[in-house]
Simulated scan of single mutants.
Amino acid sequence: MTEAGAQPTARRAQTQDKLMAAAVRVFAARGIIGASVEEISEEAGFTRGAFYSNFGDKDELVLALLKRQVEEQYAALEQIAELPLDPDRSLDDLISESLDVLQGAARPDPELILINQELMLYAARQRSVGRQYLTYQDECLARFRVLINDLLHKLGQEFTIDLDDAVTLCAAAHHQAHLLAALNNSRPDLRPLHLLIRAITRPLTP
């Protein structure tokens, strides 16, 4: 296994990015179970040894891809939090703009959406991967809670239900929108998520 938590050098990070991009292409063609380390390495233009210098095994690479999804979502929320607020704009307009930013970071390509679904299913089947991912997700939840709560307050709103429940509902609606988009070969329709946010928020109480 590679050393957990170690910050990769720029060159190492570039190699890992190429291996992960190659893995996505191979997974799309062969499926995660059917894909081999050799195929991923060849697709990336590296040797098998280069793969194992960066990832302990295929499971570690899958975990890295799952973690990258979480970090991309968090980065999108940070970008939303930095948007300037126009007091003359309606709340619906502000929510729509925020969801547009989130959409831009979600890489809504149908093939990528399906691969992301497969990554989650693989983690569910491979207990060790699933446990590590859940541990990482739990560690990230505190960051997400603070950021989402601050963002909502910036919009002059608050949730009417428990924060954890609200985040879970919004994540489920976002996930469903992308899955339906993949099935219909279309762009995700985030209107249900917009309506959900409006339904479970209210103006901040003094």
Rank of each mutant, 00 (worst) to 15 (best):
G104L: 09
A105F: 15
A105H: 07
A106P: 04
A106V: 06
A106N: 13
R107S: 14
P108H: 08
P108V: 14
P108W: 03
P110W: 07
E111W: 03
E111I: 15
L112I: 09
L114N: 10
I115D: 05
N116F: 05
N116E: 14
N116W: 04
L119Y: 04
L119S: 11
M120P: 00
M120A: 15
M120D: 10
L121R: 15
Y122C: 05
Y122N: 08
Y122M: 12
Y122A: 09
A123S: 02
A124G: 04
A124L: 12
A124I: 13
A124W: 05
R125T: 09
R125E: 10
Q126E: 15
Q126K: 15
R127I: 08
S128M: 11
V129P: 01
V129G: 00
G130K: 12
R131W: 00
R131T: 03
R131M: 10
Q132K: 15
Y133H: 07
Y133P: 08
L134C: 03
L134M: 13
T135Q: 12
Y136L: 05
D138C: 07
D138R: 11
E139S: 14
E139Y: 03
C140F: 06
L141Y: 07
L141T: 15
A142I: 13
A142D: 14
A142L: 12
R143M: 08
F144M: 08
F144G: 04
R145H: 12
R145A: 13
V146R: 12
V146K: 08
L147K: 10
L147H: 06
L147P: 00
D150F: 06
L151C: 14
L151S: 13
L151I: 10
L151A: 12
H153E: 12
H153F: 03
H153Y: 03
H153V: 09
H153R: 14
K154M: 01
L155E: 01
G156A: 08
E158C: 03
E158S: 11
F159Q: 07
T160G: 04
T160H: 02
I161L: 07
I161K: 00
I161T: 05
I161Y: 00
L163D: 02
L163I: 11
D164L: 04
D165E: 11
A166F: 03
A166M: 10
A166Y: 02
A166K: 04
V167Q: 14
V167D: 08
V167K: 04
T168P: 00
T168S: 09
T168Q: 09
T168D: 13
L169F: 07
C170P: 00
A171V: 09
A171K: 07
A172P: 00
H174R: 13
H175E: 10
Q176R: 15
A177P: 00
A177N: 00
L180E: 14
L180P: 01
A182T: 01
A182W: 02
A182C: 03
L183T: 10
L183I: 15
N184R: 14
N184K: 13
N185M: 14
N185G: 06
S186M: 02
R187Y: 09
P188L: 04
D189E: 07
D189G: 06
D189V: 05
L193Q: 06
H194G: 10
L195C: 12
I197Y: 02
I197P: 03
I197G: 05
I197Q: 07
R198M: 11
R198Q: 15
A199M: 10
A199K: 11
I200L: 07
I200A: 02
I200C: 00
P203Q: 06
P203D: 03
P203R: 02
